[in-house]
Design a protein around this nucleic acid. Structure first.
Length: 437
RNA sequence: GGUGGGGUUCCCGAGUGGCUAAAGGGAACAGACUGUAAAUCUGUCGGCGAAUGCCUACGGAGGUUCGAAUCCUCCCCCCACCA
């Protein structure tokens, strides 16, 4: 990458919607121009998978790397044992060391899809390395003395908690100090001078910037990202069944693809800028589209986002499955031309529709439709499946199921020994009869 | 440790002996309308192979009663003030 690209990073991030606030605007721009710069973002190991809500930070690191800088992803193996109170109204349950280690491993795997860790072009570190063995007294004397409690209790992250009944425990109160110390440690070890994070991290980031200036007399910078909400006001990335995960075992590539296709009209352009690498000039054209064109843009958004998280093949398979279930539509060649999405339906692709296997013998006696719907995962219980059918929302091979106790038999199986169930408008499940062994 | 307030179904929150599987709102799901969008309207919304049927449920364990989320006893947890 050229020096040009390095210098442009701040502008790129800004134009694509990544930036909420920065410290030292002009110095920061110079810092990038003089790069390569090293910057980091912390990830809490609260689960063994990251989810859609983490994409903004992940892609920010990826943009850094693409511009020729060096990103660090810091897994909070140490701070995860403490728990960040920022933006939380109640105290988090504390994680065990084993939890944290297992979760850190999952996160590492997922990040490597977005970042190139070869030859230290990006670093993946765990703050457990320097936090776990800290000694209290030296820490208080060397680091603690730089923090003013008067100022800390005014920080937004703490104020919320100080005002509620829940209160703030001492362990959480230390979080800011530890995170600031992380930044200092990264500065010392890797000359890292930039920390990015969500808007609720502003206080923690600034604390680190100031600590570095005080202790090392070096310039350090912070950037926060806006909280991404959907136009309907929801926090982005949540659906009925909870978070949309990056782990394919938790959220299948097909579901992941569907999540993006179902983007609100008003969000398509913004999300393309944030969650894909397609050029902004092309994305701008999307703003004026409506109906069909907009749906095509959502398809490309879904393809690109899925390809980033799960790879091109999985994305193509999900697209192919979606085309089969919802009807094929070719994508216009002049829409987002940089995308390598398959614009027309190609010959048979790998099956990406969720599939459920049922022993063939059960079809011989016949399976009540509501039971099958339940087993296929299209309803949470038998009663729910019954309701679904009563309300006319259940389909077998494209035809509405009229009675909840209708028997599904071998006569309903197609040439491949399977059948297609549908719940509501967009949930599908293929049921495959398993031959006897 | 003391005093007071509280723990209700996914969430918020009513309910203080039967009419309560439990008001109302939110979320969610389905149908209509559509563009796999939004908005709107209608319906559903503990489980059970049909039920005016059975089971489970109002922090936990017992008890009173024909009958308890509602009354009593003990215990656990949360919050506030005091120490």
């Amino acid at each position: 990458m050229t020096t040009m690209a390095k210098a442009d990073l701040l502008e790129t991030l800004r134009k694509r919607g990544f930036i909420e606030q920065t410290t030292h605007e002009e110095e920061l721009a110079r810092f990038f121009a003089e790069g390569p710069a090293t910057g980091y973002i912390g990830f809490d190991p609260t689960a063994d998978s990251l989810h859609v809500g983490h994409l903004v930070p992940i892609l920010a690191l990826a943009h850094m790397q693409r511009a020729g800088h060096r990103p660090i992803a810091l897994v909070g193996g140490g701070t995860g044992l403490v728990g960040d109170p920022s933006g939380k109204t109640e105290m988090r349950k504390l994680l065990t060391l084993e939890d944290v280690e297992r979760n850190a491993a999952g996160i590492r795997r997922q990040l490597s899809r977005f970042l190139d860790f070869e030859e230290d072009r990006a670093l993946l570190l765990n703050n457990a390395a320097w936090l776990l063995d800290l000694r209290v007294i030296p820490f208080l004397r060397d680091i603690g003395r730089h923090f003013s409690v008067n100022r800390m209790i005014k920080a937004e992250g703490y104020r919320l908690r100080l005002e509620t009944e829940e209160g703030l425990s001492f362990i959480e109160f230390n979080y800011m100090v530890l995170q600031a110390f992380d930044f200092l440690e990264l500065c010392r070890r890797h000359d890292c001078r930039l920390q990015m994070g969500g808007r609720d991290q502003w206080g923690n980031i600034v604390a680190g910037v100031e600590l570095i200036r005080r202790v090392e007399q070096k310039a350090a910078f912070g950037i926060t990202f806006p909280l991404i909400t959907t136009s309907s006001g929801e926090k982005m990335g949540k659906t009925a069944r909870g978070a949309v995960w990056l782990d394919p075992a938790r959220t299948s590539p097909y579901e992941y693809f569907q999540f993006w296709v179902n983007t609100d009209d008003r969000d398509v352009g913004r999300f393309l800028a944030l969650f894909t690498f397609l050029p902004l000039e092309e994305i701008r054209a999307v703003e004026t589209l409506e109906a069909d064109g907009l749906n095509a843009a959502k398809t490309i958004l879904a393809f690109e986002a899925t390809a980033l998280a799960h790879g091109r093949e999985e994305a193509a398979a999900a697209l192919s499955a979606a085309r089969r279930l919802f009807g094929a539509r070719d994508l216009p060649a002049d829409l987002l031309p940089s995308s390598r999405v398959p614009r027309q339906e190609e010959a048979a692709q790998a099956e990406a529709t969720p599939t459920r296997a049922i022993p063939r013998a059960r079809f011989q006696s016949g399976i009540p439709a509501f039971r099958l719907i339940h087993e296929a995962g299209l309803a949470a219980s038998g009663a729910a499946a019954r309701r679904l059918i009563e309300q006319g929302g259940a389909y077998l091979n494209g035809r509405r199921i009229e009675a909840h106790d209708r028997l599904v038999t071998e006569a309903d199986l197609d040439a491949d020994g399977g059948l297609m169930l549908r719940g509501g408008k967009k949930r599908f499940c293929r049921v495959q009869a398993e031959p006897e062994r």
